[in-house]
């Protein structure tokens, strides 16, 4: 029952998705090897070796792995696949791009976006944008899967696994990296942000939106969202809209400011891990979804919150 897990890193730092996907992998079996692939990724491999429960870290350090293009990553994984009956990756841009290639060449049907492990061959995964959950059992001799990392808590950094170097034999490259614009704007993209602060009709004007919602988002490094009313009334741009007809987001923290919680909005954010609602109407439906509710005047509470967070962050 050996499992190979592809590490997620940005070239210099191991990202927290790895520790989360590792939690899923450890539910499948105990022999988990982490593959760290890239260029000059020694430090990343070290961090990976420190994750609790890892058997071995496989380090593939090669020029051809720079920028982790999925063709190369998939080829590397296939090179190593022999020894594993499960091959997993976090469902990130890289995992989602590379793993289906691996699966196809192993003649395996991939299981995407695993949110729960029920047995080594049986998993839960969302379909229809999370409106239904499927329990699927694989009949393939080998399993290839991607893991929705927000569904798993990261394992602790209390391990000390050995690091092994693996060689990568590149084929002729048919795709080339040109450039990257990571976090081009200081503000993360709404769909991918870890924290989202959203405002609703109670804000009442573009200026209030800016000085309350956007200011709070700034101290948190959060993306800004909105319910439909501010968009309709023109004080928040269209592409901020979260909900059924807007974006569907699943951040770790969603702060709803002056949002009533109509189901059309909730449909776009109910998969957030933690929801905070600030609203003066104690009966607003949003409180039925919120993990933490704060009833009161947002014009008082939000600046307080912004100040408190600015303090703890500095």
């Amino acid at each position: 029952m050996a499992i190979l897990l592809l590490a997620e890193h940005d070239g210099s730092v191991l990202l927290d998705q790895t520790a989360r996907a590792l939690a899923a992998a450890l539910e499948i079996g105990s022999d988990v090897d982490i593959l760290v692939a890239g260029k000059d990724i020694g430090a990343v491999a070290e961090t990976a070796a420190g994750l609790a429960g890892v058997r071995t870290v496989l380090k593939a350090d090669a020029d051809d792995l720079d920028h982790q293009l999925p063709e190369a990553i998939a080829a590397l994984v296939l090179q190593l696949a022999e020894g594993y009956d499960t091959i997993a990756a976090p469902a990130t841009s890289l995992g989602k791009s590379a793993m289906p290639r691996v699966a196809a060449l192993l003649d395996v049907m991939q299981i995407s976006d695993v949110i729960a492990v029920l047995a080594p061959d049986t998993f839960k995964r969302p379909i229809y944008a999370g409106n239904a959950i499927q329990i699927v059992q694989s009949s393939d001799a080998r399993r290839v899967l991607t893991v929705r990392t927000s569904a798993f808590a990261p394992v602790a950094a209390t391990g000390a696994a050995a690091i092994e170097t693996v060689a990568f034999a590149p084929a002729e490259a048919r795709s080339r990296f040109i450039e990257e614009q990571r976090g081009k704007s200081a503000r993360p993209e709404l769909g991918a942000a870890r924290i989202v602060v959203s405002g609703g009709r109670a804000l009442g004007s573009a200026e209030n939106f800016q000085t309350r919602v956007v200011a709070l988002a700034d101290v948190l490094g959060a993306a800004v969202g909105a319910s439909r009313a501010p968009v309709d009334e023109g004080y928040a741009p269209n592409d901020w809209q979260v909900g059924q007809t807007g974006k569907i987001v699943a951040p770790e923290l969603y702060i709803a400011v002056g949002i009533s919680g109509a189901i059309q909005h909730v449909a776009g954010m109910k998969d957030a891990k933690t929801i905070v609602a600030i609203n003066s109407d104690a009966n607003a439906p949003i409180f039925q979804y919120a993990d933490y509710g704060l009833v009161g005047d947002l014009f008082e509470l939000v600046p307080q919150l912004t100040a408190a967070l600015a303090q703890t962050r500095s």
Binding site: H67, L94, R176, E180, E189, A192
Partner: peptide, 9 residues
Amino acid sequence: VDGGLQTIE
């Protein structure tokens, strides 16, 4: 891609 844009050929 996660957190940004990547251009490839």
